[in-house]
Nucleic acid binder design. Structure first.
Lengths: 101, 101
DNA sequence: TAGATAGTTAGACAATTATCTAAATATCTA
DNA sequence: TAGATATTTAGATAATTGTCTAACTATCTA
Protein backbone atom coordinates (compact mmCIF):
# COMPACT_ATOMS: atom_id res chain seq x y z
CA UNK A 1 0.00 0.00 0.00
CA UNK A 2 1.30 3.46 -0.85
CA UNK A 3 2.39 5.73 1.96
CA UNK A 4 0.08 8.44 0.65
CA UNK A 5 -2.99 6.24 0.99
CA UNK A 6 -1.91 5.06 4.42
CA UNK A 7 -1.23 8.56 5.71
CA UNK A 8 -4.45 9.89 4.25
CA UNK A 9 -6.31 7.11 6.01
CA UNK A 10 -4.65 8.23 9.24
CA UNK A 11 -5.27 11.91 8.65
CA UNK A 12 -8.77 11.97 10.12
CA UNK A 13 -9.25 11.96 13.89
CA UNK A 14 -12.34 9.76 13.75
CA UNK A 15 -10.52 7.18 11.68
CA UNK A 16 -7.65 7.17 14.14
CA UNK A 17 -10.21 6.63 16.91
CA UNK A 18 -11.62 3.67 14.99
CA UNK A 19 -8.16 2.17 14.69
CA UNK A 20 -7.54 2.80 18.38
CA UNK A 21 -10.73 0.94 19.20
CA UNK A 22 -9.87 -1.97 16.93
CA UNK A 23 -6.39 -2.22 18.42
CA UNK A 24 -8.12 -3.54 21.53
CA UNK A 25 -9.96 -6.20 19.55
CA UNK A 26 -12.60 -6.66 16.91
CA UNK A 27 -15.95 -4.91 17.15
CA UNK A 28 -19.12 -4.59 15.08
CA UNK A 29 -20.04 -1.38 13.32
CA UNK A 30 -22.90 -0.50 15.67
CA UNK A 31 -20.72 -0.72 18.76
CA UNK A 32 -17.97 1.30 17.10
CA UNK A 33 -20.60 3.85 16.22
CA UNK A 34 -21.67 4.22 19.86
CA UNK A 35 -18.14 5.36 20.66
CA UNK A 36 -18.13 8.08 18.03
CA UNK A 37 -20.25 11.16 17.52
CA UNK A 38 -21.11 10.61 13.86
CA UNK A 39 -23.96 9.03 11.95
CA UNK A 40 -23.85 5.43 10.81
CA UNK A 41 -23.48 6.57 7.22
CA UNK A 42 -20.43 8.61 8.07
CA UNK A 43 -18.98 5.72 10.00
CA UNK A 44 -19.50 3.45 6.98
CA UNK A 45 -17.60 5.96 4.87
CA UNK A 46 -14.67 5.98 7.27
CA UNK A 47 -14.66 2.20 7.51
CA UNK A 48 -14.58 2.07 3.75
CA UNK A 49 -11.52 4.32 3.60
CA UNK A 50 -9.75 2.21 6.21
CA UNK A 51 -10.66 -0.94 4.28
CA UNK A 52 -9.32 0.54 1.04
CA UNK A 53 -6.09 1.34 2.84
CA UNK A 54 -6.16 -2.33 3.89
CA UNK A 55 -5.82 -1.35 7.53
CA UNK A 56 -9.00 -3.15 8.58
CA UNK A 57 -11.26 -5.95 7.40
CA UNK A 58 -14.93 -6.61 8.01
CA UNK A 59 -16.73 -9.92 8.04
CA UNK A 60 -20.45 -10.31 8.10
CA UNK A 61 -21.91 -12.28 10.95
CA UNK A 62 -25.66 -12.38 10.88
CA UNK A 63 -26.98 -8.83 10.68
CA UNK A 64 -23.75 -7.38 11.89
CA UNK A 65 -20.44 -6.63 10.31
CA UNK A 66 -17.53 -7.25 12.58
CA UNK A 67 -14.42 -5.18 11.93
CA UNK A 68 -10.90 -6.00 12.92
CA UNK A 69 -7.46 -4.53 12.48
CA UNK A 70 -5.26 -6.05 9.80
CA UNK A 71 -2.41 -6.42 12.20
CA UNK A 72 0.33 -7.20 9.70
CA UNK A 73 -0.64 -4.32 7.44
CA UNK A 74 -0.92 -2.01 10.41
CA UNK A 75 2.56 -2.96 11.54
CA UNK A 76 3.92 -2.62 8.03
CA UNK A 77 2.48 0.90 7.89
CA UNK A 78 4.24 1.68 11.15
CA UNK A 79 7.50 0.44 9.68
CA UNK A 80 7.07 2.52 6.54
CA UNK A 81 6.51 5.59 8.65
CA UNK A 82 9.43 4.88 10.92
CA UNK A 83 11.55 4.50 7.81
CA UNK A 84 10.33 7.85 6.54
CA UNK A 85 11.39 9.48 9.77
CA UNK A 86 14.83 7.94 9.69
CA UNK A 87 17.69 10.35 9.25
CA UNK A 88 20.83 8.75 8.02
CA UNK A 89 23.64 10.72 9.58
CA UNK A 90 26.65 10.52 7.35
CA UNK A 91 29.37 8.47 9.02
CA UNK A 92 32.16 10.79 7.91
CA UNK A 93 33.05 13.41 5.34
CA UNK A 94 30.22 15.78 6.06
CA UNK A 95 31.13 18.44 8.55
CA UNK A 96 28.97 19.50 11.45
CA UNK A 97 28.55 22.88 9.79
CA UNK A 98 26.81 21.23 6.87
CA UNK A 99 24.11 19.98 9.20
CA UNK A 100 23.66 22.67 11.77
CA UNK A 101 24.73 25.70 9.88
CA UNK B 1 1.70 20.06 17.92
CA UNK B 2 -1.47 18.07 17.38
CA UNK B 3 -1.16 14.73 15.63
CA UNK B 4 -3.81 15.84 13.12
CA UNK B 5 -1.74 18.82 12.02
CA UNK B 6 1.42 16.74 11.84
CA UNK B 7 -0.19 13.96 9.84
CA UNK B 8 -1.90 16.40 7.52
CA UNK B 9 1.46 18.04 6.89
CA UNK B 10 2.82 14.61 5.98
CA UNK B 11 -0.14 13.69 3.82
CA UNK B 12 1.15 15.31 0.63
CA UNK B 13 3.85 13.61 -1.42
CA UNK B 14 5.57 16.88 -2.35
CA UNK B 15 5.76 17.89 1.30
CA UNK B 16 7.26 14.54 2.19
CA UNK B 17 9.80 15.08 -0.59
CA UNK B 18 10.67 18.47 0.89
CA UNK B 19 11.22 16.89 4.29
CA UNK B 20 13.32 14.16 2.68
CA UNK B 21 15.47 16.82 1.06
CA UNK B 22 15.86 18.78 4.28
CA UNK B 23 16.79 15.63 6.19
CA UNK B 24 20.06 15.78 4.25
CA UNK B 25 20.71 19.35 5.29
CA UNK B 26 19.38 22.85 4.91
CA UNK B 27 18.61 24.31 1.48
CA UNK B 28 17.19 27.50 0.05
CA UNK B 29 13.76 27.64 -1.53
CA UNK B 30 15.02 27.97 -5.09
CA UNK B 31 17.17 24.88 -4.85
CA UNK B 32 14.36 22.90 -3.26
CA UNK B 33 12.15 24.07 -6.09
CA UNK B 34 14.55 22.68 -8.70
CA UNK B 35 14.01 19.23 -7.22
CA UNK B 36 10.23 19.42 -7.48
CA UNK B 37 7.89 19.78 -10.40
CA UNK B 38 5.77 22.62 -9.03
CA UNK B 39 5.77 26.40 -9.29
CA UNK B 40 7.48 28.59 -6.74
CA UNK B 41 4.12 29.72 -5.46
CA UNK B 42 3.02 26.17 -4.80
CA UNK B 43 6.31 25.45 -3.08
CA UNK B 44 5.83 28.49 -0.86
CA UNK B 45 2.42 27.15 0.07
CA UNK B 46 3.85 23.75 1.04
CA UNK B 47 6.69 25.35 2.97
CA UNK B 48 4.11 27.38 4.83
CA UNK B 49 2.17 24.27 5.83
CA UNK B 50 5.36 22.59 7.02
CA UNK B 51 6.28 25.72 8.97
CA UNK B 52 2.86 25.85 10.60
CA UNK B 53 3.30 22.22 11.61
CA UNK B 54 6.61 23.39 13.07
CA UNK B 55 8.48 20.72 11.12
CA UNK B 56 10.75 23.22 9.36
CA UNK B 57 12.07 26.75 9.82
CA UNK B 58 13.26 29.30 7.35
CA UNK B 59 15.78 32.07 7.86
CA UNK B 60 16.40 34.84 5.42
CA UNK B 61 19.94 35.26 4.17
CA UNK B 62 20.23 38.00 1.62
CA UNK B 63 17.75 37.39 -1.15
CA UNK B 64 17.32 33.80 -0.24
CA UNK B 65 15.38 31.95 2.41
CA UNK B 66 17.16 28.94 3.76
CA UNK B 67 14.99 26.17 5.10
CA UNK B 68 15.97 23.51 7.58
CA UNK B 69 14.33 20.66 9.40
CA UNK B 70 13.33 21.25 13.01
CA UNK B 71 15.04 18.10 14.10
CA UNK B 72 13.59 17.88 17.60
CA UNK B 73 10.03 18.47 16.41
CA UNK B 74 10.52 16.01 13.59
CA UNK B 75 11.69 13.37 16.04
CA UNK B 76 8.89 14.18 18.42
CA UNK B 77 6.42 13.66 15.57
CA UNK B 78 8.00 10.29 14.88
CA UNK B 79 7.58 9.34 18.53
CA UNK B 80 3.94 10.41 18.53
CA UNK B 81 3.30 8.26 15.50
CA UNK B 82 5.15 5.28 16.90
CA UNK B 83 3.05 5.65 20.02
CA UNK B 84 -0.10 5.68 17.94
CA UNK B 85 0.92 2.43 16.30
CA UNK B 86 1.66 0.74 19.60
CA UNK B 87 -0.58 -2.12 20.51
CA UNK B 88 -0.59 -2.94 24.17
CA UNK B 89 -1.18 -6.67 24.40
CA UNK B 90 -2.87 -7.45 27.67
CA UNK B 91 -0.48 -9.32 29.94
CA UNK B 92 -3.13 -11.73 31.24
CA UNK B 93 -6.85 -12.07 31.78
CA UNK B 94 -7.96 -11.65 28.20
CA UNK B 95 -8.24 -14.89 26.35
CA UNK B 96 -6.94 -15.53 22.85
CA UNK B 97 -10.53 -15.85 21.68
CA UNK B 98 -11.19 -12.26 22.69
CA UNK B 99 -8.54 -11.11 20.25
CA UNK B 100 -8.79 -13.41 17.30
CA UNK B 101 -12.34 -14.69 17.50
C1' DT C 1 18.68 54.29 -9.01
C1' DA C 2 16.99 50.77 -12.45
C1' DG C 3 16.85 46.30 -13.47
C1' DA C 4 17.43 41.48 -12.08
C1' DT C 5 16.69 37.80 -8.88
C1' DA C 6 14.35 35.20 -4.90
C1' DG C 7 10.48 34.40 -2.60
C1' DT C 8 5.67 35.32 -0.90
C1' DT C 9 0.86 36.77 -1.27
C1' DA C 10 -3.61 37.17 -3.58
C1' DG C 11 -7.10 35.27 -6.04
C1' DA C 12 -9.13 31.70 -8.81
C1' DC C 13 -10.34 26.95 -9.93
C1' DA C 14 -11.08 22.01 -9.93
C1' DA C 15 -10.84 18.08 -7.05
C1' DT C 16 -11.43 15.92 -2.79
C1' DT C 17 -13.37 15.41 1.75
C1' DA C 18 -16.33 14.89 5.93
C1' DT C 19 -20.65 15.15 6.92
C1' DC C 20 -25.62 14.71 6.68
C1' DT C 21 -30.50 12.75 5.42
C1' DA C 22 -33.02 9.49 2.98
C1' DA C 23 -33.35 5.28 0.68
C1' DA C 24 -31.82 0.61 -0.17
C1' DT C 25 -30.23 -4.01 1.19
C1' DA C 26 -29.64 -7.87 4.16
C1' DT C 27 -30.74 -10.51 8.04
C1' DC C 28 -33.36 -11.91 11.96
C1' DT C 29 -37.67 -12.97 14.47
C1' DA C 30 -42.57 -13.04 15.87
C1' DT D 1 -44.42 -13.04 5.59
C1' DA D 2 -44.23 -8.48 7.99
C1' DG D 3 -41.82 -5.78 10.88
C1' DA D 4 -37.46 -4.67 13.27
C1' DT D 5 -32.58 -4.13 13.30
C1' DA D 6 -27.84 -3.39 11.24
C1' DT D 7 -25.28 -1.57 7.76
C1' DT D 8 -24.34 0.42 3.24
C1' DT D 9 -25.33 3.32 -0.76
C1' DA D 10 -26.88 7.54 -3.09
C1' DG D 11 -26.99 12.17 -3.40
C1' DA D 12 -26.28 16.75 -1.57
C1' DT D 13 -23.57 20.38 0.66
C1' DA D 14 -19.99 23.12 2.76
C1' DA D 15 -15.19 23.19 3.69
C1' DT D 16 -10.56 22.21 2.53
C1' DT D 17 -6.83 21.34 -0.60
C1' DG D 18 -3.21 21.51 -4.31
C1' DT D 19 -2.33 23.90 -8.04
C1' DC D 20 -1.82 27.77 -11.15
C1' DT D 21 -0.89 32.82 -12.91
C1' DA D 22 -0.18 37.43 -11.77
C1' DA D 23 1.20 40.79 -8.76
C1' DC D 24 3.87 42.21 -4.89
C1' DT D 25 8.04 42.77 -1.65
C1' DA D 26 12.74 42.51 -0.55
C1' DT D 27 17.41 42.32 -1.78
C1' DC D 28 21.34 42.62 -4.69
C1' DT D 29 24.22 44.75 -8.29
C1' DA D 30 25.70 47.29 -12.45
Amino acid sequence: MSLTITIQALSDANRRRILDILKRGEMNAGDINKKLDITGATLSHHLDILKRADLISGRKEGQQVIYSLNLSVFEEAAEQLVKFFEIKTKSKSKKIEDWRG
